[in-house]
């Protein structure tokens, strides 16, 4: 178990470094002045000069790349060219809000999609399976920001049930929850379908395995077998797909934040694009990448806890 997690951790770190390298090359290895590209057109000459010095832009590219990755890993993402505050502070302040939105969105999708998938798998080709199948296939590719706009039109503008913009009054928990409902619905809806489909396929596969017959031969009820002995195996591939899908989840949350003017990484990055404040924009890319890699590592850990075979096979 220990060595497996160490290996996954090293791999995660490697992926993060390589992703940072890709980002570095796109900013620094393109024709033009790297300082202007990295800081954006609104940076002052003094800021650019400071930047050139800090990044050592006269060094060979390899040295620069290593230095860049080192700085990012240490959380030093430069300064906001407008407010002069460290980018890391801004990004880390916005991060929890985006994580909350993504987790609540995914949470309700799991809470609904998982039982739907289980029921479908236990009654294959029944009417309920068909209905769940059609609905999940219909919602699975819907862009979340579009659902956000439609939700906004229907539930805030027309019906007035939920507030339209912002994240709610600080300190007022009820208000914050009311502000979270529509964005979370928009972020999660496609995932309901996705999870239901994944769970169904995975459950059906495990239900066909031999050990299920053993349990039935000992008179254990089908429902008990499904929930206690099949589901724990069936969720493993679902989890690994969810880990990879984390990127889509975060992208969805980012766009939904913009639709609802909700503070968070998405709004931060969008405002940075509009105000040409590039260090903040690149900083949010870096932090979101790190978030994705972390989420994937946590998924790997969860999988290792669920399936002891994976640990030994590597």
């Amino acid at each position: 178990m220990g060595s497996y997690l160490v290996r996954r951790f090293v791999l995660a770190l490697l992926v993060l470094c390589l992703a940072l390298l890709i980002l570095f090359l796109l900013i620094y290895a393109v024709p033009g002045d790297p300082a202007t590209i990295a800081l954006g057109p609104r940076a002052s000459e003094a800021q650019k000069l400071l930047f050139r010095e800090r990044m050592g832009l006269d060094d060979p590219l390899v040295v620069q790349a290593v230095r860049y990755i080192g700085l990012m890993l240490r959380g030093d993402m430069g300064t906001d060219i407008l407010s002069q505050r460290p980018v890391a502070d801004l990004v880390l302040a916005a991060l929890p809000r985006t994580v909350l939105l993504a987790l609540v969105g995914l949470g309700w999708a799991v809470a609904l999609g998982l039982p739907l998938g289980v029921v479908s798998a236990l009654n294959p080709n029944s009417w309920i399976d068909r209905v769940v199948g059609v609905i999940s296939t219909s919602v699975v590719a819907l862009p979340s920001f579009l659902m956000a706009i439609y939700g906004l039109m229907l539930f805030s503008v027309t019906l007035g049930w939920f507030p339209a913009i912002g994240a709610g009054e600080p300190g007022d928990f009820g208000d914050q929850v009311r502000h979270l409902v529509l964005p979370a619905l928009a972020v999660g809806i496609a995932w309901v379908g996705y999870i239901a489909r994944l769970v169904r396929v995975s459950m059906l596969e495990v239900l066909g395995e031999n050990h299920v017959k053993t349990y039935r031969a000992f008179g254990v009820s089908n429902l008990r077998i499904a929930l206690r002995f099949v589901l724990p195996i069936a969720v493993v591939p679902v989890l690994s797909v969810l880990g990879v899908g984390m990127g889509n989840l975060l992208s969805g949350a980012v766009l939904v934040e913009v639709v609802f003017s909700r503070p968070g990484l998405g709004s931060l990055a969008y405002d940075a694009v509009v105000s040409r404040n590039f260090p903040v924009l690149f900083g949010s890319v870096v932090v979101t990448t790190a978030l994705y890699v972390t989420a994937n590592f946590l998924t790997d850990t969860a999988i290792a806890l669920l399936d002891p075979r994976i640990v030994e096979e590597g």
Partner: peptide, 16 residues
């Protein structure tokens, strides 16, 4: 009525 399963490699739940 009890059954001894055919294939010992697959007849037990792998994660329990």
């Amino acid at each position: 009525i009890a059954t001894i399963a055919q294939d010992p490699f697959t007849s037990l739940n792998p994660v329990v």
